[in-house]
Amino acid sequence: MIHLITGGQRSGKSKIAEDFVLSKTENPIYLATSRVWDENHAKRIEAHKKRRGNQWCNIEEEKFLSNHDFSGKMVLLDCITLWLNNFFFDNGDNDELTLKQCIDELDKLFSQNCDLIIVSNELGMGGSPENKLAYRFNDLQGSINQYIAKKADLVTLVISGIPVNIKNTL
């Protein structure tokens, strides 16, 4: 099963994803994708860890998610936006390479026999940024979200802490 949970920044999507996973398993895996960019970001990561508690098996992986064997497990991948960001900045101006690498990596991950709950930011609802770098990133984020949504069995949009189910093929 693949369940995409998307929404705006600070919409409550991570908490909803965590609650969903905890309602389904006693042995949750938290697959964190963020690089530590600065002191403020490090504090935010620590706050997330503290909120989750000790029942989670935490795995930190910036790019190569499929290097881990999740067979038979339920995995919360948080988040696609930060994961895409790692490829985006590592590849410079080569957006085609970024998209290809991300899709290839997702396909490898999706081929594993596991349940994936994937958190991603929905950036397309905020208009088009004037900054060229942000514009490019938004386009890539939209493409990745669409790719995951097509593969997903469930898609949930979170608005102000309220989950709205928008796809269910189960």
Rank of each mutant, 00 (worst) to 15 (best):
D93T: 09
G7C: 02
N168M: 04
V119E: 05
P28E: 06
N85T: 08
R51N: 12
A42H: 01
G53C: 01
K108I: 00
V119T: 10
K167G: 04
K63Q: 08
F64R: 14
N40F: 08
D139V: 02
I45P: 04
I148F: 12
H68T: 01
K132I: 03
N85E: 11
L109P: 02
H41P: 00
M125N: 14
D78C: 13
R44D: 08
S34Q: 03
Y30K: 14
D78I: 04
L170G: 13
P129L: 14
Q9G: 03
D38V: 00
M74R: 06
L76N: 03
D104H: 13
S128I: 06
E122M: 12
L65H: 02
L133Y: 11
K100H: 15
T6R: 02
Y135N: 15
Y147S: 10
R35A: 03
S111I: 01
L140C: 12
L116I: 10
F88D: 11
T156W: 04
L76T: 04
V36E: 08
N121M: 07
T6Y: 05
L116Y: 09
G7Q: 04
M74T: 05
C114K: 11
V36P: 02
G72I: 05
D95V: 08
V36K: 11
S34F: 07
I80H: 04
Y135C: 05
A42F: 00
Y135G: 13
H41S: 04
R51C: 02
I29C: 05
I45Y: 02
W56M: 09
E61D: 02
M1Y: 08
A42N: 04
G142Y: 07
F137C: 13
Q9E: 08
L157S: 01
N85I: 01
E26D: 15
L77E: 05
A149V: 01
V158Y: 00
G8V: 02
C102A: 15
L76D: 07
M74Q: 06
T156N: 10
I144K: 14
L99A: 09
E130M: 15
L116A: 12
K50R: 07
E61P: 00
E122Q: 13
L4I: 01
A134M: 13
Y147T: 14
V158R: 04
S34R: 05
L123T: 12
L97R: 14
G124Q: 08
N54M: 03
L154P: 00
A152R: 06
